[in-house]
Design a protein around this nucleic acid. Structure first.
Ligand code: MN
Ligand code: MN
Ligand code: ZN
Ligand code: ZN
Lengths: 140, 140
DNA sequence: TTCTTATTGCAAGTCTATTGCAAATAACAT
DNA sequence: ATGTTATTTGCAATAGACTTGCAATAAGAA
């Protein structure tokens, strides 16, 4: 239950905890896959929660601003996914090309590479994205 | 001038070398940045080359099928970019958040990591994407 | 030049995501 | 409780990347 902490974050920025925001958060909390706006919309609908797709988008936008979710832009999907930060640290993902399952990779091998790139390019590196696609054990 | 080789590839699949395909290829050849369909369309228009945006999309699709271009799906851009394979080997990119400049990173640090992931997840890894964003020397 | 077939341009459509605005509702003061 | 105000919501419209259907055009072979 991370609701109290979130409520605080909302209030601190003049925002309100609403039933729709609660519904989105609760779904993200109980789902162990990064979800897209459409998936959230459809899942909540199945659960008879009345919410508009636009509201899902706006809720995710707010949660991102508050730093409560991470936005994932997985390779070649053409949509954005979101997962709760809650507990998890920076990590990356692998997605099955057949069934679409997304699995956390609990590693980031890019610390040293980032330093190297900064030296070589003179860029100041801010973010990176790293994702893998392939075949999951069941789809091989 | 890679035109002869490309013409061969086109012919081998029952396709034709047309003035629009030549124009797109020539632009990709002389531009040292990955280009989006819209950018190609606008640049060619400025050069008084008559071409429809749809044709640009279709041309890029063909070039990708023939393995002549790489399609890049850079983080948070919401569009696809293309660069000629010609000469270049597998590599990654860094993009400046301010001016949008994209620079080649002539490295790929992921061979060992891929093996590790395959062992840990039981996936068969097929592809990966890796990109960096930051501030280029001029925009710092 | 003629013929066949791939290619093109135009219009329309798809899909994800965003924006304007009036109605609904949460938070707060009375 | 009741009213006041500001935020949030739903609906409709819109934006932007990309795709598809189809008739007109043009490439390449004969
Ligand atoms: Mn994750
Ligand atoms: Mn490149
Ligand atoms: Zn990382
Ligand atoms: Zn690589």
């Amino acid at each position: 239950m991370l609701e109290p902490a979130i409520k605080k974050g909302l209030r601190a920025t003049g925002r309100r905890m609403t039933r729709t925001r609660q519904a989105v958060l609760a779904l993200l909390e109980r789902t162990h896959q990064p979800l897209s706006a459409t998936e959230i919309f459809e899942q909540l609908h199945q659960e008879k929660v009345s919410i508009d797709l636009v509201t899902v988008y706006r809720t995710l936008h707010v949660l991102k601003e508050l730093g409560l979710v991470v936005q994932l832009d997985l390779h070649q999907e053409g949509l954005l996914r979101y997962e709760l930060k809650e507990g998890r640290t920076h990590h990356h993902h692998i997605r099955c090309q057949v069934c679409g399952r997304i699995v956390d990779l609990l590693l980031c091998p890019l610390k040293k590479v980032t330093k190297l790139i900064e030296r070589q390019t003179q860029f100041i590196v801010d973010e990176h994205t790293l994702e893998f696609t392939g075949l999951c054990p069941e789809c091989q």
